[in-house]
Amino acid sequence: MLSVNDLEKSFGSIRAVQKVRFDVKKGEVLGFLGPNGAGKSTTMRMITGFIAPDGGTAEICGHDILKDPVGAKRCLGYLPENAPSYRSMTVTDFLTFIAQVRGFRGAELKQRVDAAIERTSLGVAVRQTIDTLSKGYRQRVCFAQAILHDPEVLIMDEPTDGLDPNQKFAVRQLIKSMAKEKAIIVSTHILEEVDAVCTRCVIIAHGKIVANGTPEELKKKDPNGHLDVVFRQLTLTPEEQAENEKINKKILAAADAAEKKEAC
């Protein structure tokens, strides 16, 4: 449903994204992992048509993002980082605006907005302006906006960032509930999320894809099956790993010394 072909983007001399290539099929939830600054958001912004790639392209439901951007955007729901929305509007007004832009009118529009509100449990807040809502609710408003037109492809940039554990759980449940009939990409740097929702994950570091497989396959790379160890091995440069090792040794030595002192 979504295929990304050799996307590239540079900002000045920094090559933010280099030849990124992957596919997402219907029913898959792809975890898009990487440290901060690895190029996750840039890749997503290129797929969603917000910024133009320097090279390569992507296809969403058969629409090339460069040749038919409006067609591609129609099949796509996007939850940008930090869940932006028009703060001075009420929840209903905001969702109605999105529905209108998406081409819905009359009874269908109302039904779509109501369905999105119900799905994200926003019922109690519909008449409030968005800037009076808590962060969790604002997140839901933006989520509602992304699923309003029941898109075939759903792209979410750090959907659980800054939410409390209950809210994180709710967002994950929501993603799971839609997983069957959509192709979903979720970017994150929270590894527990991968176990919770993803059927497959792609790890990106320094603008390049360094791993692509199911969470189980990735875990096998570490003898103890710890995903965070694998993640560190894949995303840190050898120098950074050596540096980490040094710090670790120091901490261990300090702990040892403290123990000895106590023993005396």
Binding site: G49, K73, R74, P80, P84, V101, R102, G103
Partner: peptide, 14 residues
């Protein structure tokens, strides 16, 4: 400033 530019320009409008 609000980041809504990202929302607006990824909607199906030119």
């Amino acid at each position: 400033r609000n980041g809504t530019i990202e929302l607006l320009l990824t909607l199906p409008v030119t």
